[in-house]
Design a binder for these strands. Structure first.
Lengths: 342, 342
DNA sequence: CTGTTAGCGCATTCAA
DNA sequence: TTGAATGCGCTAACAG
């Protein structure tokens, strides 16, 4: 059986309150302090966080719900989030929704049961209904990457639309006019990116044939099939925009299997960086999301709210009803996958 | 404030004990059952797991400590582990050690405080000292990937030595004699793999110059630098064994930057699969770890022990003192990165 | 600065 | 089958 403060009491003769105070950083006589420390060492005492949590109704745990944990984007974010939370004295309880909205709802409910102090969520679902149990329990939530439209819950993300626009603009400025787009309208991020792409084409009054527009899902398969289809067209595009990491993966696979070369035959620009892109030859030009910043901001936002809840006496910032999203700029990192066209 | 069973009591007129029994699947009159269910729905009641845990001294949480969470190997494992645990009614609390032994020790202590029911650990540290708090608290542990020698704690892993041996054998059978090895002696897995490589060379009485043996860490940098150095040698190796994923990444980068081609100029075989390898052209021949099996076995082993602890009355299997490691075979998946030499 | 007391929300005796 | 009482380990008043 693990030692409790009662054991410390028996060993030191001090009262439970004194020991508790020690554990929570209160002031006591040096000699008592030493006694307790000795007892703790001797008994190998470790605080029972369940008991502590029961009385404080704080768990010092932040629940993190991600749409898919086996995903480089996700786990890089998890890493950075974890660092921030740890610094602030919180641990992360990570739940994988496996791209399943039902699991996601269960995860939220589970974390509510666990009395987490706050939640970070990268959602599968597109509406906020599944968050109800958390909201009712008054648990602060910060979303990442994918907003929940009209929910009023803040989301930290990049400006997908603008970044895509700029990526397309880069292709355009390199002289490309026959530009294909492989993207997704299944995820919000995908739609935002598509919008950016189409906007650029519109602004530049550049028409592309319908066969250049490959809209499906953010999946390897979609990237692979789409690129294969593009390569079979009579009039090839000279450049292709790849809407996310999985699409890049699939598209590059398809291209690698063909006799065509990048960038001499076909130029590429992709959305989503990952160290992994180091493997591709030539190195891809990419729209890079500032993962560190995204995580820092999301963690910061949540921690701030946790702090404020503490001195809940003061009710400030009445204008803050409309918690807007926090939108960070993405960066284009140049590789050598875009050829100049005259 | 969140609803408690007391609120249900007030609403239904039943006693706390009856409600508790309902929550734990006991038998009660259908009418009472219905009453409670109605109250739960009305109050949006959710069990307070902290309170429950305090009295049962079970958290239904399994702690998972990984050496680095931003790692495809790790998070794929996490995904599979998570699925198994969820099925069994457990949640995972994931802690990232960030390749830091001190953090790792803290993580273990933290999870002990959280009263997790069991732990899965992919260790940074090479000795078992840091596990003491968990062992003392009698928390079942299963290691993955990296054994802790002499600790008696079971580890689920692949046969690194044999797999490396077979990988080298494949190069040999393709006719290669000038084989270089980029590996690590800093991690146990690295040493095991190196041993396998050297054993094959020994068995085949194949001597290689010292300059072909690049021993450092499992890092991109080591892979990159080593490959660069190899490519500068007067007598190039005809094939290179790459000891893990990061090394592959670095080595392929270096090769991509050189005029030499794989496999016509130099053949490659790598340890560690990842979808990512789809990006490389040509597709790499790889030693693939059966991640799903590894996770299933580790989760199974742990869950089994958790079950057995329940009926702790029965003390079976007295021969089980020496809990050997569970060693799974790795698979070689052929790409086209190895050329035939005559 | 220290000790006494009460109670967090729930499961679990034991009676009824 | 149900209910009343007890305690899990700890913190938070309050009093000394």
């Amino acid at each position: 059986m693990a030692a409790t403060i009662k054991d410390i009491k028996d060993l030191t003769g001090l009262s439970l309150a004194t020991i508790s105070k020690y554990l929570n950083g209160g002031n006591l006589l040096p000699e008592n302090k030493e006694k307790i420390e000795q007892a703790i060492a001797e008994l190998h005492y470790e605080v029972n966080e369940m008991a502590r949590g029961l009385v404080t109704s704080k768990s010092k745990v932040i629940g993190v719900v991600v749409f898919d944990i086996a995903n480089v984007f996700t786990c890089t974010l998890l890493k950075y989030l974890g660092e921030r939370f740890r610094e602030a004295g919180y641990a992360a309880m990570i739940c994988d929704s496996q791209n399943d909205a039902q699991l996601e709802a269960e995860n939220v409910r589970f974390l509510v049961s666990k009395k987490v102090d706050g939640m970070i969520i990268i959602p599968v679902e597109q509406t906020a209904g599944f968050l109800e149990p958390a909201l009712r329990a008054d648990i602060p939530i910060v979303l990442m990457d994918r907003s929940l439209e009209g929910s009023g819950i803040p989301c930290v993300k990049v400006n997908n639309r603008m970044a895509s626009y700029q990526a397309m603009e880069m292709l355009y400025n390199y002289g490309h006019r026959r530009i294909a787009v492989i993207g997704s309208d299944r995820e919000l991020t995908g739609r935002e990116r598509l919008n950016g792409c189409l906007q650029l084409l519109k602004d530049k009054k550049t028409d592309i044939p319908a066969s250049y527009l490959k809209i499906g899902r953010h999946s390897i398969e979609h990237g692979y099939n789409s690129m294969q289809e593009l390569l079979e067209l009579k009039e090839l595009p000279t450049a292709v925009f790849l809407g996310n990491f999985e699409i890049i993966l699939g598209a590059v696979m398809a291209l690698n299997e063909s006799p065509l070369q990048c960038p001499s035959d076909i130029s590429l620009i992709g959305f989503d960086d990952l160290i992994i892109s180091n493997l591709s030859n030539p190195r891809l030009t990419l729209v890079v999301q500032p993962l560190r910043d995204l995580a820092d901001n999301a963690a910061g936002l949540l921690l701030e709210r946790l702090q404020n809840n503490k001195n809940t006496s003061v009710e400030i910032d009445p204008d803050n009803q409309k918690q807007g999203d926090l939108i960070l700029p993405a960066l284009i990192v140049e590789g050598s996958s875009i050829a100049r066209r005259v």
